[in-house]
């Protein structure tokens, strides 16, 4: 019942873009976490530092756990824990901060992460194409922006010179 109440409080459920479609989101992202406050029930995304400090408690609480990292945290730091996370959120503190593009590629290509990679923070339509190419597959758009409009971002450019998370080889192999 508690889970349901939580959802009721934030009704309508937040919508995110996942695999180029709009879906209702089941995750609750905890942006800042004080130790003395209890986590809400249900699937939660916690800051990476909170994961590090409360790893055992999180693993036994019986919900899905996602972590949120930003450009300051090295992907190497969470490489050993990836199996615990069905979702990793990559935080863009400003849309011009491009470090998480590299994070996404490293998580996909180097560490073989197959879970959900979600862009959060200053996430805007005109960067989604690049994010998607780097392996980010869900997007929490900044809430003052039109999320339906943002769906157009994925079809604007169809040519991809480089191999990336969405393209196995370089374009020249098709020529």
């Amino acid at each position: 019942m508690r889970v349901k109440r939580r959802y009721n409080q934030r009704w309508p459920a937040m919508r995110v873009i996942k695999d180029n479609r709009l879906i209702d989101d089941r995750w609750q992202r905890i942006a800042r976490m004080d130790d003395d406050h209890a986590l809400p029930a249900g699937d939660v995304i916690v800051p990476f530092h909170y994961w590090q400090a409360h790893r055992e408690a999180l693993l036994t609480r019986g919900s899905n756990i996602g972590v949120c990292i930003n450009g300051d945290i090295e992907t190497e730091e969470l490489a050993g824990d990836l199996d615990h996370f069905p979702l990793i959120a990559l935080e863009f503190p400003a849309f011009t901060d491009g470090r998480c593009y590299s994070h996404a590629r490293l998580l996909r290509d180097r560490y073989g992460y197959r879970g959900e990679l979600r862009a959060v923070g200053d996430v805007l339509r005109d960067q989604l194409f690049f994010m998607r190419r780097c392996g980010i597959d869900s997007f929490e758009l900044r809430n003052d922006k039109d999320i339906e409009d943002a769906l157009r971002a994925f079809s604007e450019i169809t040519v991809r010179y480089q191999a990336a998370a969405d393209t196995a080889g370089p374009l020249y192999r098709n020529r």
Binding site: F95, T96, D97, G98, Y101, S102, R105, Q127, F129, F130, M131, R133, C134, I157, R160, Y161, Q162, A164, P170, L171, Y172
Partner: peptide, 14 residues
């Protein structure tokens, strides 16, 4: 030029 054009990872460098 082709490799760097709309490079998904390197369009928001420092």
């Amino acid at each position: 030029r082709q490799w760097s054009t709309l490079h998904p990872e390197f369009s928001y460098l420092p």
